[in-house]
Measured scan of single mutants.
Amino acid sequence: MSSSSWLLLSLVAVTAAQSTIEEQAKTFLDKFNHEAEDLFYQSSLASWNYNTNITEENVQNMNNAGDKWSAFLKEQSTLAQMYPLQEIQNLTVKLQLQALQQNGSSVLSEDKSKRLNTILNTMSTIYSTGKVCNPDNPQECLLLEPGLNEIMANSLDYNERLWAWESWRSEVGKQLRPLYEEYVVLKNEMARANHYEDYGDYWRGDYEVNGVDGYDYSRGQLIEDVEHTFEEIKPLYEHLHAYVRAKLMNAYPSYISPIGCLPAHLLGDMWGRFWTNLYSLTVPFGQKPNIDVTDAMVDQAWDAQRIFKEAEKFFVSVGLPNMTQGFWENSMLTDPGNVQKAVCHPTAWDLGKGDFRILMCTKVTMDDFLTAHHEMGHIQYDMAYAAQPFLLRNGANEGFHEAVGEIMSLSAATPKHLKSIGLLSPDFQEDNETEINFLLKQALTIVGTLPFTYMLEKWRWMVFKGEIPKDQWMKKWWEMKREIVGVVEPVPHDETYCDPASLFHVSNDYSF
């Protein structure tokens, strides 16, 4: 037999072997998808029940369902290793196997995995149920939502704001400190077992692309791009910072340095994350009609249902689908009040099986009107990829998912749209002054938050990498806050605090 014939037969044999492996992989994935749908849905439903009704029974049910899901994933991840990716030609099959071969938290021992889940659930519970009591009246206690958040959004009393700011960190942050220390250790162990340098590197892996249509993007490039983007917006932020400082000097004349940092408790919310609520103090042309339409919403008797129905109309107007019937029947759109304790931070849920929901303790404000559009943007994205195989139902990356939500809320905030839905009067006219007011309001929300987020994530990356010793977490946190964000702590904090974890995203294990 000629050498060319042998070569042809060899190629046929290799192709047949690849085809056999690929067919086996497809069969394996079909079985996995069928089983995963049910187990993931049960786990998601148990998590939803806990988040909307925080009880010991629900946390136990959530843990049990989560353990079943984790055990299943660990088993299936091991089985998926049997299919070598280099022998799979079908890109859809390869991407699913690649996702499943990534072990995630299931790489930890059973004891450590359970401990990590306990830590995460405990931190979430402390954050959502933590109360601050009035020292003069111990029976008068406030949760973060709505009590403390209400103070931080609306109060102009310097000392009341300081009390709310400090009490939240003292009551909740200190409880979270030992848990967060354990969390860092276990998450790093999980990341390294998955061949990442640390948990920050694991997060950045979400943005990594290897040879898809000839395109590559590394975790290191992400760090470079983040640094570059921050340097680009820094001059604009510094101008905004100086303008806000001048306006705060008028409101709090004896508390603000004309050349120094801004006190952290005066920036519009509990964390200084969004400066939106400073608009009334900083509006350049106050004689113009108010483009913050909160009062109009209240006057027109809007409620949470109306807010979300208007958001749905907005999405339908640009060619996107209505929310499902189940969305309206199962979402929690208002604070249950004293009936039950719930996690009030707005979140969009894709539970699986076409079950999409939003959890939000909606208030009738323009801020929540825009947040509703943001969260519904997440749901629209979830619905758009719902037909994909189970392992591919995700956003391109976390940042893109947020961008989908944010672009919709930005569009909904324009005076033209607000006028079209009757929240600005029919005779409202846009001119240079109203446009400047609008742009300032947008800058308070968007530009003001960028250094906050950059600095927070930089601190977390450094902590996970071990570049900040545990006994210097708070020292470095406030050094970076002053240097990068231009914000100063109103009272000193020692290493018993854990100020970063006083933010939902940190205590609940979300990256930005």
Results as ranks from 00 to 15, higher is better:
19 S>M: 09
19 S>R: 07
20 T>G: 10
21 I>G: 05
21 I>T: 08
21 I>Q: 12
21 I>P: 11
22 E>A: 11
22 E>L: 05
22 E>V: 11
23 E>D: 03
23 E>T: 01
23 E>R: 03
23 E>I: 03
23 E>Q: 01
24 Q>A: 15
24 Q>Y: 15
24 Q>G: 15
24 Q>E: 11
24 Q>D: 15
25 A>G: 04
25 A>I: 02
25 A>S: 09
26 K>C: 06
26 K>Y: 11
26 K>A: 01
26 K>V: 01
26 K>E: 04
26 K>I: 00
27 T>A: 00
27 T>K: 01
27 T>L: 00
27 T>R: 04
28 F>R: 15
28 F>G: 14
29 L>A: 13
29 L>T: 14
29 L>W: 14
29 L>D: 09
29 L>C: 13
30 D>T: 01
30 D>Y: 12
31 K>R: 14
31 K>A: 15
31 K>N: 14
33 N>E: 02
33 N>Q: 04
33 N>P: 15
33 N>K: 14
33 N>G: 11
33 N>A: 11
34 H>K: 15
35 E>A: 04
35 E>T: 14
35 E>D: 01
35 E>N: 09
37 E>D: 13
37 E>R: 14
37 E>L: 11
37 E>A: 13
38 D>W: 14
38 D>F: 14
38 D>K: 15
38 D>T: 15
38 D>Q: 14
39 L>Q: 04
39 L>R: 00
39 L>H: 03
39 L>K: 00
39 L>V: 01
40 F>P: 13
40 F>K: 00
41 Y>I: 15
41 Y>S: 15
42 Q>I: 00
42 Q>T: 02
45 L>M: 01
45 L>S: 13
45 L>R: 14
45 L>I: 04
45 L>T: 10
45 L>W: 12
46 A>H: 10
46 A>K: 10
46 A>I: 13
48 W>P: 09
48 W>I: 06
48 W>V: 09
48 W>G: 11
48 W>Q: 10
48 W>S: 09
48 W>M: 11
49 N>G: 00
49 N>M: 02
49 N>R: 05
49 N>T: 01
49 N>Q: 00
50 Y>H: 09
50 Y>P: 13
50 Y>K: 11
50 Y>C: 08
50 Y>N: 12
50 Y>I: 10
51 N>C: 07
51 N>Q: 09
51 N>Y: 05
54 I>N: 11
54 I>Q: 10
54 I>K: 10
54 I>M: 10
56 E>M: 07
56 E>C: 04
56 E>A: 06
56 E>W: 03
57 E>A: 04
57 E>F: 03
57 E>D: 09
57 E>M: 04
59 V>P: 14
59 V>Q: 09
59 V>L: 06
60 Q>F: 06
60 Q>N: 06
60 Q>Y: 05
61 N>L: 03
61 N>T: 05
61 N>Y: 07
61 N>V: 06
61 N>F: 06
61 N>I: 02
62 M>E: 13
62 M>V: 11
62 M>H: 11
62 M>N: 10
62 M>G: 13
62 M>S: 10
62 M>F: 09
63 N>A: 08
63 N>M: 03
63 N>F: 06
63 N>L: 06
64 N>Q: 07
64 N>H: 08
64 N>C: 07
64 N>I: 07
64 N>W: 07
65 A>Q: 03
65 A>K: 02
65 A>M: 02
65 A>W: 00
65 A>C: 05
67 D>K: 04
67 D>Q: 01
67 D>N: 06
67 D>G: 04
67 D>T: 08
67 D>A: 03
68 K>V: 11
68 K>S: 11
68 K>G: 11
68 K>C: 11
69 W>P: 12
69 W>Y: 09
71 A>Q: 03
71 A>E: 06
71 A>T: 08
71 A>M: 03
71 A>L: 02
72 F>Y: 00
73 L>C: 08
73 L>I: 07
73 L>V: 06
74 K>R: 04
74 K>D: 07
74 K>H: 01
74 K>V: 05
74 K>M: 04
74 K>S: 05
74 K>L: 05
74 K>I: 04
75 E>N: 00
75 E>P: 02
75 E>F: 00
76 Q>H: 12
79 L>F: 01
79 L>T: 00
82 M>F: 05
82 M>S: 14
82 M>P: 15
82 M>T: 14
82 M>N: 10
82 M>V: 15
83 Y>S: 14
83 Y>Q: 15
84 P>Q: 11
84 P>R: 12
84 P>G: 10
84 P>H: 12
84 P>F: 12
84 P>T: 12
84 P>M: 11
89 Q>F: 02
90 N>K: 00
90 N>V: 00
90 N>C: 00
91 L>P: 01
91 L>S: 02
91 L>G: 01
91 L>E: 06
91 L>F: 03
92 T>Y: 00
92 T>K: 02
92 T>R: 00
93 V>T: 07
93 V>F: 11
93 V>K: 13
93 V>S: 12
95 L>Y: 01
95 L>T: 07
96 Q>G: 12
96 Q>W: 12
98 Q>L: 06
98 Q>Y: 02
98 Q>I: 01
98 Q>W: 02
98 Q>A: 05
102 Q>L: 03
102 Q>K: 04
